[in-house]
C-alpha cells in the first residue's frame, strides 16, 4: 500500500466522518487545523483510495489536493534574525512551504552574515541536521555566496537547497562540491511577496524542495524503514496520550525518516521507547530515541529494516 500526501479542505460539519474514513483506509491524519467553519487535514492516504475520499467529501464541501510536502520538516535558514532578513524573505518562504504541507522551522543564525565572518555554531548545525532538508536563504552577491557557503555548509548532513539573487546557473557554479538544490533570482528583498513574478519564485523554491525530498525518499526506499513515521505517530498518540495535551500545532512532527515528539525527553523518552507497535515489537527496537537540540523534545530516528531485520 503506497501512502500519498494530500490536503483535505472542507467544512467542519461532519468532518469527523472523513477523519474516520482515512483511519479505516489505513491512512493517517498528520495535522488538523480548524479555522472557524473550515477544517484543513494534512494526511497520508492510500493512493487508490483518493477518489473515494473525494466522493465522500464532495457533499460536505470537501476538496482534496495533492500536497507533496506533507510529512516533512524543512529548516529555513537565514543569516540572522535582523531587519535585513526578516520578515521578508525568510517568513514568506517559511509560510509558503507550510501551505504545501511541510512543517517549516525558521533558523536564524547567530553569525551567518558577512562573507569573511560567517559561521555556524555546533548547536545550529545539530538543529539543522534534525530536519529533512535545509533551505539556505543567502543574499544578492555571487562573490559573497561563494565565500560564505564554504563555512555555512560545514557539518550539515541533510540536503541543502541554496537560494540567492544570482541566476540558478551561477549559483550552481558558485558552490563546490554541489549542494542538493538551487533556486536563483531570490536573494534579499524587503517587501512582501505578492506580485505574480515573486510568487513564481516561491513556487520554484517549493518545486526544488519537493524534488530534493523526492530524491531523499527514493534513497530511503532502497533500504526501507522498519516502520512508517506516520504509523509510529499514531502508536505514540495511543500509548503516550499526554502528547495530545501539548498545545503546539504539531505535537508530533512527522519527518521523512523520523518524528519529533514535543514532550520532555527526561520524562517521556522511556515510555516512547517502550511503546508497542505490534505484539513484542517496541519503538525502541525500531528507532533511536534521542534528545532533540530543539528545546527538550524527543527525536525519533527510525532505523532502516536492514539494521533491525523488522518491518512492521
Amino acid at each position: 500500500m503506497i501512502l500519498v500526501p494530500i490536503t483535505y479542505k472542507g467544512g467542519v460539519y461532519r468532518h469527523d466522518e472523513i477523519v474516520d474514513l482515512i483511519a479505516d483506509l489505513g491512512g493517517y491524519v498528520i495535522q488538523k487545523h480548524v479555522l472557524a467553519t473550515e477544517v484543513v487535514l494534512l494526511c497520508l492516504v492510500p493512493r487508490e483510495d483518493i477518489p473515494l475520499i473525494e466522493q465522500i467529501g464532495r457533499p460536505l464541501g470537501g476538496e482534496v489536493k495533492p500536497s507533496p510536502l506533507v510529512g516533512t520538516e524543512v529548516a529555513i535558514v537565514t543569516p540572522s534574525l535582523s531587519i535585513h532578513h526578516l520578515p521578508h524573505p525568510a517568513c514568506d518562504i517559511a509560510e509558503y512551504v507550510r501551505r504545501l504541507g511541510a512543517k517549516s522551522n525558521m533558523i536564524g543564525l547567530a553569525r551567518g552574515y558577512g562573507k569573511r565572518v560567517a559561521q555556524t555554531s555546533a548547536e545550529e548545525r545539530e538543529i539543522i541536521n534534525e530536519h529533512d532538508c535545509a533551505v539556505f536563504l543567502l543574499g544578492n552577491f555571487d562573490h559573497c555566496i561563494r565565500k560564505k557557503m564554504v563555512a555555512l555548509r560545514r557539518g550539515i548532513d541533510v540536503p541543502i537547497i541554496l537560494t540567492g539573487k544570482p541566476p540558478t546557473e551561477d549559483l550552481q557554479k558558485a558552490v563546490d562540491p554541489p549542494v542538493a538544490g538551487y533556486v536563483g533570482n531570490v536573494g534579499r528583498f524587503m517587501h512582501r511577496t505578492k506580485e505574480a513574478d515573486e510568487l513564481e519564485r516561491l513556487d520554484a523554491i517549493v518545486a526544488e524542495v519537493t524534488r530534493v525530498l523526492d530524491l531523499r525518499r527514493e534513497e530511503i526506499a532502497k533500504d526501507p524503514l522498519s516502520a512508517s513515521p506516520a504509523r509510529l505517530m499514531s502508536v505514540i498518540q495511543a500509548q503516550v496520550p499526554e502528547v495530545l495535551e501539548v498545545t503546539s500545532p504539531t505535537p508530533i512532527t512527522v519527518q521523512i525518516a523520523g518524528l519529533r515528539v514535543k514532550l520532555p525527553y527526561a520524562e517521556f523518552a522511556d515510555r516512547v521507547r517502550a511503546a508497542e507497535v505490534e505484539e513484542g515489537v517496541t519503538i525502541g527496537q525500531l528507532a533511536d530515541i534521542l534528545p532533540s537540540r530543539m528545546r527538550d523534545y524527543i527525536l525519533v530516528r527510525i532505523k532502516p529494516s536492514s539494521e533491525t531485520d523488522i518491518v512492521v
Binding site: 544578492n140 555571487d142 544570482p166 533570482n185 524587503m190 517587501h191
Partner: peptide
C-alpha cells in the same frame, strides 16, 4: 552601482522599499 548586474536591481528595490 555594483559589479554584479543582479545586485544592482536587488539593491535598487531594497533602497526603494526601505
Amino acid at each position: 552601482e555594483s559589479p554584479e548586474a543582479w545586485a544592482v536591481s536587488a539593491y535598487t528595490d531594497i533602497a526603494n522599499d526601505v
